[in-house]
Design a protein around this nucleic acid. Structure first.
Lengths: 234, 234
DNA sequence: TGCCTTGCGTAACAAGCTGTAAAACAAGAG
DNA sequence: CTCTTGTTTTACAGCTTGTTACGCAAGGCA
């Protein structure tokens, strides 16, 4: 009876925040994503029980995603959409979604509908791969431990892990600061953004990066960061 | 496999007619009833796959009926109600309904939602065990005893057992504080929450954990706890 | 009933994590 | 070379969590 995992895919930070909070209060584990790409990357490791998906996503055709989720992953899919037309609902459901909720929604109802989905099919998620290997390091996300090439382990914190996971999900790709903030669940634009730099800084020291010569986390001046190194989610 | 059977329970003849027609056009078998009593009598003979139930029935408490249907018959229940309040929907869903549609409804959407319910398979229940083995320890929940790898036993209290069981149910998974409070039956937010820390602390000492180097119960600052160690519910 | 034991929550203090502010540093532009 | 702007690091304050001590309540036993 491992507690169910609910994923949230929505580009509005406020919605993510509300859903995360309500669902965790209700006893679920959650993981939220701002973009379909991040979500899909995470699916290599995680098998959610219920997926809440906003259809009006900018970067992908949400319906195709729903289709894949429902058919290949075997997860229950609940669409949360701003489009209230009956035709939208019908096509969403026909494509394999298990439920369809229109914005604005009441958090209590979302929880109730998530519960209803879980009742109908205990297709409990298989334990996900939580270790990644890269450039001599091994990250154990289940233990929050970073393993050396000599086998020595150092712990990393939750905040550091979030950043690391983001990098490991999208290696060799430019990740803009805005993307990071979204993924790390913060409203952008505030003085908050310095916090992220500090997180990266601390992560770098744990990875024993030479500031002059970064081998793993490279800064692209004025643009963002790139994680170099081949990642293998064993 | 014969085509799925959908039952309709509604006191308005016009609604019954519309639903019957649309559903049969969509390829389902249907049976409709005007009163709860007739419907219940019919349940002795047939086992529907999906039940459409109007909550505002004159002769019975619809919610009790839903409860019975969902729990005893194992059928998927869709409530069709004139009451659109969120609270109505939530209680309906909590009682075991799988979906909730408000009048006026669009027949096409009803069909889509019936199909969605049929896609997810029948329900099952899992048996429980009362002893679990993990990392040299054996927990006997029937006796409230914790057994050493040498066979020595120490008792644990009810409160400690609740926490331990929660961990053993979800090993190697992040368990948030909110989830814990939910499981331990406390409303969140009060000063109550410090009690949980103490419970964990006491459990840790019984498990002879080294505070600096926790091998079993790891704290994730700002997020929750993780139970490491492979659990086997013998 | 009165005493003792045990369980359990609360309060208080210590230790560690995290965000913010500010200072140091690096990269381009002119 | 200097100025400006973006990034890294350090220092610090606030909050979360661990632990210990204490008090209250429930149950056993004479």
């Amino acid at each position: 009876m491992t507690s169910p995992l609910v994923t949230i895919l929505d580009d509005e930070p406020e919605i993510r925040r509300i859903l995360t909070e309500t669902l965790e209060d209700a006893g679920f584990r959650t993981q939220s994503f701002a973009r379909a790409r991040e979500f899909e990357a995470a699916l290599n490791r995680v098998t959610p029980d219920v997926c809440l998906v906003d259809l009006s996503l900018p970067d992908t055709d949400g319906l195709a995603l729903v289709h894949r989720l429902a058919l290949e992953q075997g997860a229950a899919v609940i669409i949360i959409s701003g489009r209230a037309q009956v035709q939208d609902r019908v096509t969403g459901l026909e494509l394999g979604a298990d439920d369809y909720i229109t914005k604005p929604f009441d958090p209590a109802e979302v929880v109730a509908r998530v519960r209803a989905r879980l009742r109908s099919g205990p297709r409990t998620a298989a334990p996900a791969s939580e270790t990644a290997r890269f450039s001599g390091w091994t990250a154990h996300f289940d233990r929050y431990m970073l393993e050396d090439d000599t086998g020595a382990e150092t712990p990393f914190s939750h905040a550091e892990g979030e950043v690391l996971r983001l990098f490991l999900d999208s290696p060799k790709r430019l990740i803009s600061r805005a993307q990071m903030q979204e993924a790390l669940g913060g409203a952008a634009g505030e003085s908050f953004d310095r916090a992220m730099d500090v997180r990266i800084s601390r992560l770098r020291t744990k990875l024993r990066e030479d500031p002059k010569n970064p081998r793993l986390i490279k800064t692209i001046y004025g643009a963002g960061y790139i994680f170099l190194g081949d990642v293998d989610w064993a």
